[in-house]
Design a protein around this nucleic acid. Structure first.
Length: 895
RNA sequence: GCCCGUGUGGCGGAACUGGUAGACGCACACGACUCAAAAUCGUGCGCCGCAAGGCAUGGGGGUUCGAUUCCCUCCACGGGCACCA
């Protein structure tokens, strides 16, 4: 007899050890079964897992265990996104080496992950900070460079003058460095870039093919890539007015139709023509300097007024040589989009309108909204950007916008200036090249050497990896690689003369852009990937992670895979076939009267009628229960996975994570909910024991006939099985959980009914001889159906609560592991009933039910329905106007 | 400002392609067991109403025999982008 209570702590450690010893989750590359690659976004080794990890990895583990049971060769690996700033910060604050800190964290987190009972293949574990990993990344950098996918160019960056480093936009808070608090400067720096824009069309178009990605993420990427179709137009300049006799200005526009509404031209402050003009005009130079100071701080952009400076330069309208337009430098023109110059049509662009209203340049509407009288249509404060008919536009008048765009493009393409056409069609993207240079130590070194004679020289491949020096110091600001006394001083591989290593390292997003490909064969030392292996395993069938990576990580990975294809390292372009973005784990917040945040573990909550009261455990002081928010250290509303696992067990934590909310929405972690999950785990344990008793002595062979009780059981079994099978596939874990509860309730009910005959359950323990007497209520077919039911029950929850499932599996007399058992097949034909009960509506409101044979024809059903008292009463003897019968669904009588 | 999403009992949520709204869980109430508590088991639980019945999926309108589901409009909350020409 199994014990009454399930001891999670004991069982979980035991089963984890058994899985580990038998190596059942290590995946063979040479396996004839169909492959399935499930991957959760690998963690940054901060030192401790948090509840978000628990949720993420539980979901992936359910998929992995389910697919394994379905007969797939499942790849489910884990690794560490191990480079990054926190390690350097720890080095500065605690005088511990980044490497030491990182590996200690990895060890601690690995232990925690193991305690969750995840079915991971640890033999493929990788850490991106390991030279055996980043060596290949350096190799690919060189391959990309040869393929023209890496560029070195000047770019504006956020520069922290105190820490002497580049900051990402996210690290600039209110114009100040997040660590130093220093005012951030805009600096022009020479940086390494990946030419992601070369793939912009492909990255955009392929989004349509990613039909197993959330629409939301596809849309976000689409907007981020930002394609727009337009016309590149060369405006002639009045050379008398230009600083150095420049004769033309090229602009990009998506609205060539509005050319006759032009009132001015505008240049970005960094535009070459603006800079040339500034050399001869100190006041303009001052204006440009002013624009630069305002840079990228977002709050400023929000409120910044449109400002301009008339350069005195005059442009000539492409359709009218006598029409001159003033050329301004304006603070709202971006140098790195289009050509950094525009023509302004104030009537149909809000920014341009704001601008002319400030400088008194006027506006002329050229698109008249439908139903408006062109004679009276005026624009004052609000630009019109809708559809309409062209007006005030000479040969374009009367056309639609689309016709006018086409006509302008056609005419200007034919016209030439010099020997080139005045205009050409162009597609522009918002996407920028990916700057990967970071002035940091704890990252992948860029394998480049700078030689005064030879210039930029690549590190020869036989010299890879370029490893990080270990003897570095963090006692002063700036890049420790740059400070290192010897590391950067090398001989030039080309001329042998004195040269310097590149001291910038790569953005950590590079590290995470191909780890999923490395997992397919992390052992190969001669290349980043083993082509047959990577081609077999990729793409990742199901990738699971947070929505916060919807753009950067996922876009970079899509780029990187394309670049790897181009350089021969993989055979595909899209790395992730299915993507799932899970919601966050949120928790109530608590604060004392003095306003201090208090952790959930420090308080006690009591029911007070319908309300709840919280008090501080230590002092009994009243605590206010606040909003439900994302778990964060600052609000102190975190719950430590370790404590939950120690107290309730990993299975309970996993179950609760899956049970309450749909996986793509936020889930609220509550003590009540965890206790509910704990109670259910105990209930399953008892239920498996009781059901096992009933199932004892069940015949091996499937009975030819099933009694009503047995059929009830079988229907419940296969209904639950069908539902859970379908819903795991769709990742609707919360619905699976509900179906398992429902099935467990049903099983419990049947056992209760059987148990009503005292002694029945245990009476027929040894089959035929005693079956005749006291065991009369429990016939062999019922025992057989019960055995089927309880086996299925255990298998259904096995992906979610794998330890408890193994424990039950043994108690049911199985010798193998449930983790290795094949998923049972749902006999869906059992779910088809002979007689069906249809709801009967009268005028769309449900009034009765009618039970008819499954194959009953419509006239029969109609007759049965019209014979119902409720229907007769409603019709009051009249003939119904209409009777609608939806087969197998519903009947609606229209009176 | 532009784009997108969400809105169902006290709470989390379910509902296939337009077909019985509220599965399942939590909370709550009552009962059983117990000296007692916990655990467990049973019953009830959208709102109004004694009942018959009526009203209910953010508000208003529409399409339909029938709308949580489709369309229009308004409101609230959440997310993304943010001077992209």
């Amino acid at each position: 007899m199994a014990p009454d209570r399930y001891n999670a702590r004991d069982a979980e450690a035991r089963w984890q050890k058994i899985w580990d010893e038998r190596g059942i989750f290590a995946t063979e590359n040479a396996d004839p079964r169909p492959k399935y690659y499930v991957l959760e976004m690998f963690p940054y080794p901060s030192g401790r897992i948090h509840m978000g990890h628990v949720r993420n990895y539980t979901m992936g583990d359910v998929v992995a265990r389910f697919k394994r049971a379905m007969g797939f060769n499942v790849l489910h690996p884990m690794g560490w996104d191990a480079f990054g700033m926190p390690a350097e910060n720890a080095a500065m604050e605690r005088k511990v080496h980044p490497k030491e800190w990182t590996y200690a964290n990895i060890a601690a987190m690995k232990k925690q992950l193991k305690s969750m009972g995840l079915s991971l293949d640890w033999s493929r574990e990788i850490a991106t900070c390991d030279p055996s990993y980043y060596k290949h990344q350096q190799k690919m950098f060189l391959d990309f460079l040869r393929a023209g996918l890496v560029e070195r160019k000047q770019s504006k960056v956020n520069w922290d003058p105190v820490d002497q480093t580049v900051l990402a936009n996210e690290q600039v808070i209110d114009g100040r460095g997040w660590r130093s608090g220093a005012l951030v400067e805009q600096r022009e720096l020479t940086q390494w870039f990946f030419a992601i824009t070369k793939f912009a069309p492909s990255l955009l178009e392929a989004l349509d093919v990613l039909d197993r990605w959330p629409d939301k993420v596809r849309l976000m990427q689409k907007n981020w890539i930002g394609r727009s179709e337009g016309l590149l137009v060369r405006f002639a300049l009045d050379a008398k007015t230009t600083p150095d006799g420049e004769s033309e200005l090229e602009i990009f526009t998506t609205r060539p139709d509005t050319l006759f509404g032009a009132k001015f031209m505008a240049l970005a402050p960094d535009h070459p023509l603006a800079l040339a003009a500034a050399k001869k005009n100190p006041r303009l130079a001052e204006f440009i300097e002013e624009c630069r100071r305002h840079g990228t701080a977002q709050a400023e952009i929000d409120t910044a007024e449109k400002q301009g400076f008339d350069t005195g330069i005059r442009a000539i309208h492409p359709f009218d040589k006598t029409w001159q337009l003033p050329v301004y430098v304006a603070n709202f023109i971006l140098m790195d989009y289009g050509t950094g110059a525009i023509f302004g049509c104030p009537a149909h662009d809000q920014r341009d309108l704001d601008f002319v209203n400030k400088y008194g340049l006027g506006n002329t509407p050229v698109v008249c909204p439908p139903g408006q009288d062109p004679k009276t249509f005026v624009i004052t404060k609000t630009a019109y950007d809708g559809d309409g008919t062209m007006i005030n536009s000479r040969f374009l008048d009367g056309m639609t916008i689309a016709q006018a765009k086409e006509e302008v493009a056609r005419r200007l393409e034919q016209e030439t200036a010099g020997d080139r056409p005045v205009a050409q069609r162009q597609i522009n993207f918002r996407l920028r090249d990916w700057g990967i240079s970071r002035q940091r130590y704890w990252g992948c070194p860029i394998p480049i050497i700078h030689c005064d004679k030879c210039g930029v020289v690549t590190v020869p491949e036989q010299d890879l990896p370029v490893t990080l020096p270990e003897d570095v110091t963090f006692d002063r600001p700036g890049n420790p690689l740059d400070h290192h006394p010897t590391w950067k001083h090398v001989d030039c591989p080309q001329c042998g003369g004195k040269a310097r290593r590149e001291t910038d390292t790569m953005d950590t997003f590079v590290d995470s852009s191909w780890y999923f490909e490395r997992f397919t064969d992390p052992w190969i030392t001669t290349a980043p990937t083993d082509r047959p292996m990577v081609d077999d395993w990729m793409p990742v069938d199901q990738y699971i992670g947070g929505i916060e990576h919807a753009i950067l990580h996922l876009l970079y990975s899509r780029f990187f895979t394309r670049a790897m294809k181009m350089t021969g390292h993989v055979g595909l372009e899209e790395p992730f076939k299915g993507l799932f973005t899970q919601g966050m784990v949120v928790h109530e917040t608590y604060r004392t009267e003095s306003g201090d945040w208090v952790a959930p573990a420090e308080i006690k909550i009591e029911a007070d009628g319908d309300a709840r009261r919280a008090t501080l455990l230590t002092t009994g002081e009243a605590v206010e229960i606040g909003a439900i928010e994302k778990m964060s250290k600052s609000k102190r509303n975190t719950v430590d996975p370790d404590e939950i696992i120690a107290g309730y067990g990993a299975d309970v934590a996993r179950w609760f994570m899956l049970s309450d909310s749909p996986p793509d929405r936020d889930v609220e972690w509550t003590e009540r909910g965890v206790q509910g999950a704990f109670r259910f785990a105990q209930r399953l344990w008892r239920l498996a024991g009781e059901a096992g008793e009933v199932a004892k002595g069940a015949p091996d062979a499937r009975p030819a006939e099933f009694s009503l009780t047995a059929m009830t059981l079988r229907k419940a079994t296969h209904s639950a099985l069908a539902k859970v099978t379908d819903d795991i596939e769709k990742l609707h874990f919360n619905v699976c959980v509900a179906a398992i509860y429902e099935f467990a309730n049903k099983l419990n009910e049947v056992i209760g009914d059987l148990g009503a005959d005292s002694g029945a359950i245990n009476g027929a323990g040894n089959g035929a001889q005693s079956g005749a007497d006291e065991g009369a209520a429990i016939t062999p077919d019922v025992r057989w159906a019960m055995r089927e039911a309880v086996n299925v029950l255990v298998q259904l929850f096995a992906p979610m609560m794998p330890h408890l499932a193994e424990e039950c599996w043994v108690a049911l007399g199985h010798t193998g592991l449930v983790a290795q058992a094949a998923w049972p097949r749902a006999e869906r034909e059992l779910l088809i009933e002979d007689a069906i009960t249809l709801p009967v509506q009268i005028n769309g409101k449900k009034r009765a039910d009618v039970t008819v044979a499954r194959e009953a024809k419509n006239p029969e059903i109609e007759a049965a329905v019209l014979a119902l008292d409720a229907v007769k009463k409603a019709l009051e003897g009249k003939v119904p106007k209409k009777v609608i019968i939806v087969p197998g669904r519903i009947v609606n009588v229209v009176a």
